[in-house]
Design a protein around this nucleic acid. Sequence first.
DNA 1: AAGCTAAGGTTCAAATAATGAACCGAAAGA
DNA 2: TCTTTCGGTTCATTATTTGAACCTTAGCTT
Lengths: 260, 260
Amino acid sequence: MSTIGKALTLLDAISRLEKEAGLSDIARHCGLDKATARRFLVELEKHGFVEQDMETRRYRLGGAPVRLARIRETRFPYLSVATPFARELASLTGETVHLSEHAAGRLSTIHVEDSQRAHRVIVDIGSILPFHATASGLGFLAFCAQKDIDAALSVPLQAYTDQTLTDPTALRQTLGETLRRGYSICHHGLETGVVSVAAPIRAPGSLPVGAIAVAAPSTRAEKETVEQMGRAVMATARRISERLFGLEQVAADPLARRAG
Amino acid sequence: MSTIGKALTLLDAISRLEKEAGLSDIARHCGLDKATARRFLVELEKHGFVEQDMETRRYRLGGAPVRLARIRETRFPYLSVATPFARELASLTGETVHLSEHAAGRLSTIHVEDSQRAHRVIVDIGSILPFHATASGLGFLAFCAQKDIDAALSVPLQAYTDQTLTDPTALRQTLGETLRRGYSICHHGLETGVVSVAAPIRAPGSLPVGAIAVAAPSTRAEKETVEQMGRAVMATARRISERLFGLEQVAADPLARRAG
DNA sequence: AAGCTAAGGTTCAAATAATGAACCGAAAGA
DNA sequence: TCTTTCGGTTCATTATTTGAACCTTAGCTT
């Protein structure tokens, strides 16, 4: 792997760690030599991607990604467009709603609207959603090209619970149903006792950019409720997609035509 | 410079470019060989920091920083705490308010609340604010340690307008006044016809983490108005700082004590 | 339509930067 | 007090990065 790749993998490791971490910890966690880890950290710190606490000497995520994220958001306002819809969906369903974005071949949680109920599902911002074991993953993958599906199912599929689907053939069938239905359903895929439904956010005829999902405790998820939530999440995903891509196309098409 | 440094510099260059850019463009812009630039871009793309448009083959900022930024925001909720105060200040003053964060030795604009007036100051999200030529920069620097001030003033200081202060001695005096006053004032430092005031956001007795500023057309900025805006921005900065650091200290201190 | 230019992308010997075992001093635990 | 572990550094060895030259394609000019 290239040095850049290793450094970005280290950055990813830091982002997964709870709170701050020491040099030796980080090095162990990434399978890097202490000296190497330190060089990477120093370099990342120079550019603001990590920070070092001067007292504890521990390292944490820096502020540089904030600037980049805000710039991306001005060019492609995914969060600011989708967040109000997510809030509306959370209020409508009374359950936790989360929004994910596809980047680097992974689906990352980038926003959560918590359910107001005492008994609710907790989703962490920044958590990676496995394709085969979450409604978001299945809802995203079902609308991808066949080669992307093949790629996602050709890696070892971890069984997070005793009900996680890990058989590629069964998963392909689930994806087919999802595609026909328009939204995905996932029972106890990542955690026991959680049912979730999701739908992709996408330009028509194009690869999805992310997904929106509703997650509920299975005690509140009878068949009919799941179907209601599914239709709601599908409708919401469509509205977000239209706002993101529909209007943009109208505005951008003449320019694209001129350029071509 | 290390490979990592070069790659992150390339990423920074992409973030500064308007819209997307081609390979040769990017390579030229960074003074890198085309082959090298490509290797970096491929590596950055693998990790989601850049994206390539499959049709135009042009490169743009990717989605990975969004995840990192959201994670940082959950650990240090700078934006979500400061934004409502910025909005309130914008409504109070009727002028454009912007919020900046210090990372990698630079002050970057990470949020803007636009003035509702037709004649108003525009500030771009993501723009870098020079220390010597903006109210944010001066307001930040005035509250830094002497060595940081020395470092900031020892680089060549660009004159953006014919009224930009570039003399270190004069700037040191301005910083002294700013420190005593509690907020900075900058007339026509970065652009002619713009007056702005700013105050640092900081833990008591610690290095600032950023600044908040109000920018107004100079036609609306008489002495008294500037003083009003200055007092308002200072009060707002203090309230943000208290919310960020005051409560946290109360909550975190016992833990810190236990660990120590 | 032929010819030209510049684009994106690739190759491989030469040049350079990354690597990690061994080391240091400090501090926390036994 | 002794031991371990921490953050951090050094430098000869090693592996990776580098970039001139190359290929192919797309758009422009003649």
